[in-house]
Design a protein around this nucleic acid. Structure first.
Lengths: 220, 220
DNA sequence: GTCTATACAAGGATAGAC
DNA sequence: GTCTATCCTTGTATAGAC
């Protein structure tokens, strides 16, 4: 791993766990075992580090979502993959950055905080939502054609409903201590499917997907 | 309005819109038309301001949820009030603090950020979730007794499902620019009700509640 | 209760040697 | 590419006058 990547990964870690303002360049430098000014050889400012951290998250997440969807052409399974993929991405991110704080991380918070402050980030984050919305619309389309999903659904609204349920779940599980996300996520997906599908009794299949290794997505 | 309350309201505003670290005591002092050191006469530190801001939000929100629930003893309407109340609280908070930034606010983000950093806050925030969980459980109980809500529901999970849908919606609408929350909130509530109720066709009633004035809840 | 003046610390960033 | 030394700004907080 190059020094540049080490710096980026350390930044990502601190930004996710402590937030941007509570992360200092000294902390990052210490974590990478270099001195503060060396960071400036690789990145032009602290903001630059934030931007690259967020691009890293979004690039990888999009890649993994796209990949997980192609594993099946069954709309129900695709939707399940979509659902699981985002939840798993959050857990994996936590493992990947070596989260040795005992605070759970939530990658969405960082979007909320900085999308309104940095126009450049806002664009990219919105692009991400456009992308996953379009993926979901395609899945719903296919499901309707195959008579698996209700034809009466408002597509736009259903997309919002699905995304907000997933993100709400991640957010809530990091704030409210009494939630055991793993024990209910399958059931919550079944509820979601039941609410949009034409089936009467949705079978309760337990599936665990593995999305492979998280790669560095962006060229420098 | 006393100087103390003015300071608190200004802090709340900045904390919600800019976050804690990006809010300086000078900004607060300017907004209230006093000098920086005068703040220390009323509050012992910047942290003290953060704590009181969050208590203010939670005290008021709990009060309004409790109040909105008592307006009906029909579980469907109570659940709708609950749903609407939290969404409206977020909008009202935005109006109340005189949000002249063009960034939408989301009062839940602040919980996510500081519940893990300040043990005292974590306790209070968890207490809030325990409270609203218990309110929701009661509503579901009543609904089941009155044969309006499915008996097969896992109560714990349903509670999490409901809260995460509401909070996910608020969060998403502040990040993703293409969402018009007001045009879909009623439909989303109907979806929620449809997924837990025994009715086959849920009637589409449009209701707008007014939760009255937001009061200062905490004694100093 | 509010002010002026000021202490003190810390963070981002740059210059320039090696 | 990485370092030491240092600049500069800003933020929290306190002392003490009025």
């Amino acid at each position: 791993m190059t020094t540049k990547n080490k710096i980026l990964m350390a930044s990502l870690k601190f930004f996710l766990v402590r937030g941007y303002e509570n992360t200092t360049l000294s902390m990052i430098a210490d974590a990478v075992n270099i001195k503060k000014p060396s960071i400036y050889y690789h990145f032009k400012s602290k903001e630059d580090l934030l931007f690259n951290s967020i691009y890293f998250i979004l690039d990888n997440l999009e890649k993994q979502i796209t990949h997980s969807i192609t594993k099946s052409d069954n709309p129900k399974q695709q939707l399940e993959s979509f659902f699981e993929c985002i939840l798993d991405f959050n857990s994996k991110l936590s493992l990947m950055i070596g989260n040795d704080f005992n605070a759970p991380i939530n990658f969405i918070t960082i979007f909320q905080l900085y999308s309104n402050r940095f126009c450049e980030l806002s664009k990219r984050i919105n692009e991400y939502y456009e992308n996953i919305s379009s993926i979901l619309k395609d899945i719903i389309d296919q499901g309707q054609k195959k008579k698996l999903i209700k034809n009466t659904l408002d597509k736009e609204m259903t997309v919002i409903d699905i995304i907000s349920r997933i993100e709400g779940l991640i957010a809530l599980s990091t704030i409210y201590k009494s939630i055991d996300l793993n024990s209910i996520r399958n059931q919550l997906y079944e509820n979601l499917w039941a609410s949009i599908s034409l089936e009467n009794n949705s079978p309760k299949t337990k599936k665990f997907f593995n999305y492979g290794h998280i790669n560095l997505g962006r060229k420098w």
